[in-house]
Nucleic acid binder design. Structure first.
Length: 598
RNA sequence: GCGGCCAUAGCUCAGCUGGAUAGAGCAUCGGUCUACGGAACCGAGGGCCGGGGGUUCGAAUCCCUCUGGCCGCACCA
C-alpha cells in the first residue's frame, strides 16, 4: 500500500537504503521514523532533502559525504520507483526529486479521498482531553475568549483529523467567589427592579467588586419577571443559592448561544460544583494528606508546595472559612481527568495563568503521575484595532467588547481566521477594519476568493457546454506538465504532512499559512498562465473563431479542471479545520471607476 | 526580588522542532494590461534574526549572559 503522503513515501525508500547499509555494518541502526525528510526549500534542490547521512556519519566515524553517496547509490531510480533523481549536496545532504508522474498520480488520490484528503489513519493513543475556554459563567464572552474558542476548536478539529482520539471539554467554574459575586450583583439589580415596581422595597448597595455590565441588569429584570418579589426579603449571602443558580444558568445560556453562533461545540461540560458535590475535592485533599503534603495552621489548610516543588511559600487549599480554593479544586479536577483514562491533558489557558503550570504539574507528580501528561497551551492577549488605534477595554467597568459584537461586525469566518492567523503564544492585533474589508488585502477574503474562483471556473466550463470530460486517467493527468502546475500538485500532496506536523505541534495556526500560500500560488498561476504561457484554462472569446471546438485542446482543459477541483477540495479541507467556510462565490463590491476619483 | 513568555524588513507577522542564499502580506517605488472573476499578476529596494559568549560539520531555532517589553508571584479564579 502506498504511504499516505509523499514525504512518507520518500522516508520509506530512504529507510530501506539505510537498512541495507546497517546490515552491511557501514553505519549504526536507526529507526525509520527518525530519518528526517523535509521538503526542499529551493526548487533546484529537488522535492525533498534528508540530513540522515550527516546524522549517521559521526557515530560511524565516516565522512558524511561518503555515507550520503552510499545511500544515494542504493536509492532505486526510474522504473517503478517514484524517484527520478537523487544527489549529494553540500556537507552531505541527500536531495531527491520525484517523477512528475508521482505528483500527477496524487491528483486522483486527492479527488478520491475528497473531504478525507489529509486525514491520518486513526490511532488509539494518546487519548487526549482538550480542555479550553472554560470562561467563568459570569457573563458574555469577550474578545480574549474568542481567541481561546477559535484556537481550541481548530485544534480539536485538527487533532481529530490527524487521527488522535480527542474529547473536548468546557470546565464550568460554577463554584467559588466569582459566581458568588455574580449572584450578589444580580440580586442588587433585582432589588432595583423590584423597587421601581414598589417604592417600599429597601435600597441595597451594589457590591463593591460586583459585575457592572448591563447584562447583570437584564438578569435582575428577568429574575423579577419570573419570580416577582419573592427574593426581596432575602438578605445575601444566607439565601442566595437560588439566585446564584439562576445567574449561572443565564450566563451559560449566553455562552452557549455565542458558541453556537461561532460554530464551536464541546463534547463535555464539566461542572466544578459537581466535583465538590461528588466528593472528588475532599477525596483529593485526603489523598494529599495521606501522602504528607498537608499542613494545618492559622485556621487554614495548606499544601506544602515548598517541599513539593520548591515554591517560595506554601499555598492555601482550604480557607479559614472552610471553603476550598480553586487550586485544590483544580488538582482534583486534573486528577479526575487522568482517572477517566486520558493519556494527555491538553489545557488552553490565558498567558497570565502561566504561573499555575508548574503547580499543576507538581501536583500530578505528588500523585506519582508524569507531569508531562499535562500539556498547557498559553494564549496571549488580543488587542482590537480600529482605525489603527487600540480599542479601549476597561473590564472593571464592564466596558468590554464581546465576542458577539465582533462576530456581528466582521462575520464568523473573518473572526475565526484572524484569531488563528498568529501563533498562540504571541500577542494578537485584531484589525477590525481589515477583517471586514471585502478586498484582497484582507487575508481571509483573499483565501476565500481563491476557492470562489475555482468554483467560478467550473461553472463557466459547464455553461460553455464543453465536450464531456473524459475520466481521470494517468495519461490525462500527464497533461499537467507546467512547472507551476506540478508545484501546486506538490503542495496539495503535502497537505497530509502539514496536518500531521501541525497536530503534533498543537499549532492550528499553521493551516492559515498553508492555505494562504496555496491561494497565492494559485492566483499567481492563474494570471501567469495567460501572461507568460499565453494559455488559458477555458477557451476565450478570441479563441472562438472558425472550427475552434474541434481544434481546442479539450484534454488539457479537462485535466486542468480536475486539478482545479483538487485545489478547491484541499482549500475546503484546510478551511474546514479552521472552521472557516469555503464559499462558491464572493459578494461583488461596488465597482469604482477612475472617473470617481476626481 | 523570584519565575514565565517575547524580541526577525518601515509596519503586522511566518519560518514546518538544528540545515543549504532568512520568507510573506501591507506600505513605498517601478512594471504587465482588449482582462477565463484585473477584486489580478510581476519586479525592486529594504535584515548583524535585540547585544555578547557558547555547543557543532551547521544556530533565527539549543545553552549561558546582558538589554528592552509584556505577564505572573492572594485564605480571587
Amino acid at each position: 500500500m502506498r504511504p499516505f503522503s509523499a514525504r512518507e513515501t520518500v522516508r520509506e525508500i530512504l529507510a530501506k537504503a539505510v537498512g541495507e547499509l546497517v546490515a552491511e555494518g557501514v553505519v549504526g541502526a536507526v529507526a525509520p521514523e527518525a530519518i528526517s525528510v523535509e521538503r526542499a526549500k529551493r526548487a533546484e534542490h529537488g522535492d525533498f532533502a534528508s540530513n540522515i547521512a550527516l546524522a549517521l556519519a559521526k557515530p560511524a566515524g565516516k565522512a558524511p559525504r561518503v555515507v550520503a553517496e552510499a545511500i544515494v547509490a542504493r536509492l532505486p531510480r526510474g522504473g517503478s520507483s517514484p524517484i527520478v533523481e537523487a544527489s549529494v549536496a553540500g556537507p552531505g545532504f541527500i536531495n531527491v526529486r520525484l517523477a512528475p508522474v508521482f505528483w500527477q498520480e496524487t491528483l486522483a488520490e486527492i479527488l478520491a479521498a475528497g473531504d478525507d484528503w489529509g486525514r491520518a489513519p486513526t490511532r488509539t493513543a494518546p487519548k487526549i482531553l482538550l480542555e479550553y475556554l472554560s470562561a467563568n459563567p459570569t457573563g458574555p464572552m469577550h474578545v480574549a475568549h474568542g481567541r481561546h474558542a477559535a484556537v481550541g476548536d481548530a485544534l480539536a478539529r485538527l487533532l481529530r483529523f490527524a487521527g488522535y482520539p480527542v474529547t473536548s471539554e468546557f470546565y464550568v467554574n460554577d463554584a467559588g467567589n466569582q459566581v458568588h459575586m455574580l449572584a450578589q450583583s444580580v440580586w442588587a439589580r433585582y432589588m432595583e427592579t423590584a423597587r421601581a415596581a414598589d417604592p417600599a422595597v429597601p435600597t441595597v448597595p451594589f457590591p463593591e467588586n460586583g459585575y457592572k455590565g448591563d447584562y447583570v441588569r437584564d438578569f435582575g429584570r428577568t429574575l423579577f419577571a419570573r419570580d416577582g418579589a419573592r427574593w426581596v426579603g432575602a438578605a445575601p449571602p444566607s439565601d442566595i443559592e437560588p439566585i446564584r443558580s439562576f445567574a449561572i444558568a443565564e450566563s451559560l445560556g449566553i455562552i452557549r448561544a455565542t458558541l453556537e453562533r461561532f460554530d464551536v461545540a464541546f463534547d463535555v461540560w464539566q461542572s466544578e460544583r459537581a466535583l465538590h458535590e461528588a466528593g472528588d475535592v475532599a477525596e483529593t485533599l485526603a489523598a494529599l494528606d495521606a501522602k504528607g503534603f498537608i499542613d494545618r495552621h492559622d485556621d487554614a489548610v495548606w499544601l506544602k508546595t515548598t517541599a513539593l516543588w520548591g515554591d517560595d511559600k506554601d499555598r492555601v487549599v482550604v480557607k479559614s472559612d472552610g471553603l476550598p480554593t480553586y487550586l485544590l479544586a483544580d488538582i482534583a479536577y486534573h486528577r479526575k481527568k487522568l482517572a477517566r483514562g486520558f493519556d494527555e491533558l491538553c489545557d488552553i489557558w490565558g498567558a497570565d495563568h502561566h504561573g499555575h503550570i508548574a503547580r499543576m504539574q507538581a501536583a500530578l507528580k505528588a500523585f506519582g503521575e508524569d507531569p508531562a501528561r499535562l500539556r498547557v497551551i498559553l494564549i496571549q492577549i488580543v488587542s482590537l484595532l480600529r482605525d489603527g488605534k487600540p480599542v479601549a477595554m476597561g473590564k472593571r467597568e464592564g466596558e468590554f467588547v464581546t465576542l458577539d459584537e465582533v462576530v456581528s461586525e466582521v462575520g464568523r469566518d473573518a473572526t475565526r481566521y484572524f484569531y488563528l492567523m498568529r501563533r498562540h503564544d504571541t500577542p494578537l492585533e485584531f484589525d477590525l477594519e481589515l477583517a471586514k474589508r471585502q478586498s484582497l488585502d484582507n487575508p481571509v477574503y483573499y483565501v476565500q476568493y481563491g476557492h470562489a474562483r475555482c468554483a467560478a471556473i467550473r461553472r463557466r466550463a459547464v455553461e460553455m457546454d464543453a465536450p464531456q470530460r473524459p475520466p481521470l486517467s494517468p495519461e490525462l493527468a500527464a497533461e499537467l506538465a507546467l512547472p507551476e502546475e506540478l508545484a501546486i500538485l506538490r503542495r496539495l500532496a503535502e497537505f497530509p504532512d502539514f496536518v500531521a506536523d501541525a497536530a503534533a505541534a498543537r499549532e492550528p495556526h499553521r493551516l492559515t499559512t498553508y492555505v494562504a500560500d496555496l491561494a497565492g500560488e494559485f492566483q499567481s498561476y492563474y494570471t501567469q498562465l495567460q501572461k507568460v504561457h499565453d494559455d488559458t484554462i477555458l477557451p476565450q472569446e478570441r479563441h472562438r473563431t472558425g472550427d475552434w471546438q474541434a481544434t481546442w485542446d479539450w484534454r488539457k482543459t479537462a485535466a486542468r479542471l480536475y486539478w482545479i477541483d483538487a485545489i478547491a477540495q484541499v482549500m475546503r479541507n484546510a478551511l474546514g479545520l479552521l472552521g472557516v467556510s469555503a464559499p462558491e462565490s464572493m459578494p461583488r463590491p461596488p465597482t469604482t471607476t477612475k472617473e470617481d476619483d476626481s
